[in-house]
Amino acid sequence: MAKSRVIGLDIGTTHVRATEVEFGRGGPSLGGEATVVNFGEVALPAGAVRECEVAEPQTVGSALRQLWLQAKFSSRDVVIGVGNQRVLVRDLNLPWMPAAQIRSSLPFQVQDMLPVAVDDAVLDFVPTSTFAGEQGNVIRGLLVAATKETVLANIAAVETAGLRPMMVDLDALALARVMARGEARDRVVGIVDIGARSTTIVIIAHGVPRLVRILPTGGDHATDAVASTLGVSFVEADRLKRQLGVGYAAPPEYASAVECVQSVTTVLVEAVRNTMVYYASSNPGAAAELLLLTGGGAQLTGLGQYLSSASRLPVSLGQPLSTITVHGPRLGPAISDRQHSLAVSLGLAFGVAS
């Protein structure tokens, strides 16, 4: 196979990030050869993205132009992602039929399952397995339904920057692709990607995504609570949150800040634990064996230990670059320290090889 390059673009709440990947033999597959050749990120002004959705396309577009100017990516073709509370992901069984027929029939199959009108949604179906039903073969998979408004807002920001969106993907599926490589390919693994304003959970069984849940809690919610309680700036609150961590003793003057961080973190950890319990009860004998943390919020000191204790599962920081070569003139050794943040953009690049 001829080599090809793909750029995955992650539009987050606080940053825009892009990763350029060169694919060799095997293409963008779980076992294919891949090399990260470029990466860049630019901070976003507060409010440009709200609730994980582009609110100011012009502002985000300006940041993207700056990103392309700084990183000097080889193309303006990008794969972009979506992932917030207005994206529905549900189990769905369908009678076996060709992929093209599934896509064309989805609006009729799922119109009663959606919280919005079918005409206001962008639909996709991700097959995960097949089995024999009473009326013939059945395809089991995940229904993905995003509001058109969400998708079009991301596309508008990208096009404002002069970029060309070649594909729109779900952030959770991007995570599944890049984290299901190597040893994780043969295991049942839970991915917990903690962003600024949301957390994405994906359970992958032997390389196949089986469950997706998007939680409305992220790292910045703890920072907001500390800032409000102590009456300090967001920047100072974030610094203090990282200094205190979760589950550690602190001086008495920081007791209220510790309580804020603990309260928000407990909500998140309980939601992750409940997700694992639900999956285990729905899949007897095939529960998750390991949790991998990614995203900026994964760096909170003590979070991994707390989550491991609550879920009774081993927890590790995800290493999306562990099965991928890194080689590019603009990439320094520090990129390995940033891999928790580039997981989504890296996974988006795995969605297609143009």
Rank of each mutant, 00 (worst) to 15 (best):
E289F: 00
Y279H: 12
G219F: 06
R181V: 06
R86L: 02
G136D: 06
G83Q: 04
G296W: 13
G328A: 09
V267Q: 13
S104Y: 03
L291W: 01
P209Q: 08
G12S: 09
M97R: 12
F234S: 15
G302S: 00
V192K: 01
M113C: 02
G133W: 10
T294H: 03
S354T: 05
G328N: 05
V79R: 05
F108T: 12
L170P: 14
I11W: 09
A257F: 06
L114R: 04
A280C: 09
W68H: 14
L321P: 11
E289P: 00
V189A: 02
A48K: 07
Q58T: 13
D224Q: 10
L64F: 02
S345N: 07
V82G: 01
D10W: 11
D124H: 00
D77W: 01
G195L: 05
S29R: 13
L152D: 14
P98C: 01
A180Y: 04
A176V: 04
I201R: 04
L9Y: 14
L348I: 12
C260E: 10
P115I: 05
V226M: 11
A18R: 06
G207N: 09
L307I: 12
G182D: 11
P329E: 10
A18T: 07
D124V: 00
R187Y: 01
V49H: 03
V158I: 10
A55R: 07
T323L: 06
G47T: 07
L230G: 08
I335A: 10
V82P: 02
L317Y: 04
